[in-house]
């Protein structure tokens, strides 16, 4: 009986560990989203929808523009450093969740079968 309890505890721990799903970063395991193409190749954006203002939605980097002395070069104001043109997805991918969930479920089912067998063996 004590052995059964210990087995149950070990099973529970294993299930919890397996349930801590891997952090799939992005890309490979996820269905790629379509390339944005709000305008068809033959369409030209209407003048009223042409982006003519500096975007300010949702990104603090796009909010304020510092005053910089203009240069005499072809680029009148040269930015400093490298642009941050990529925000990685830090949440777990759906593929990772699926695999992690599947393995956890397999462990739980296997453990349950084992416990039932042991109880029957003890009872016999």
């Amino acid at each position: 009986m004590r052995r059964t309890g210990l087995s149950a505890l070990a099973l529970a721990c294993t299930a919890v560990l397996a349930g801590a799903m891997p952090a799939f970063a992005d890309g490979a395991s996820r269905t790629p989203s379509p390339v944005p193409s709000s305008a068809r190749p033959t369409e030209r954006p209407a003048p009223s929808t042409a982006p003519s203002t500096v975007p300010s939605t949702g990104d603090r980097r796009a909010s304020a523009e510092p005053t910089r002395a203009p240069s005499r070069g072809q680029v009148s104001v040269v930015p400093s450093g490298a642009p941050n043109t990529g925000v990685a997805d830090t949440s777990s991918g759906s593929g990772g969740a699926l695999i992690g969930g599947g393995t956890a479920a397999a462990v739980v089912v296997g453990g349950a079968v084992l416990l039932v067998r042991r109880r029957r063996a003890h009872g016999a």
Partner: peptide, 29 residues
């Protein structure tokens, strides 16, 4: 060649002096 067809925004400088980047949103431009 890489399937890009996008409107183009106008960008300036970010507060830290780097080049401003487009907003992070769906249907990136």
């Amino acid at each position: 060649a890489i399937g890009v067809d996008t409107p183009v925004l106008r960008l300036g400088l970010a507060a830290d002096g780097t080049a401003q980047v487009p907003p992070v949103q769906a249907h990136d431009r």
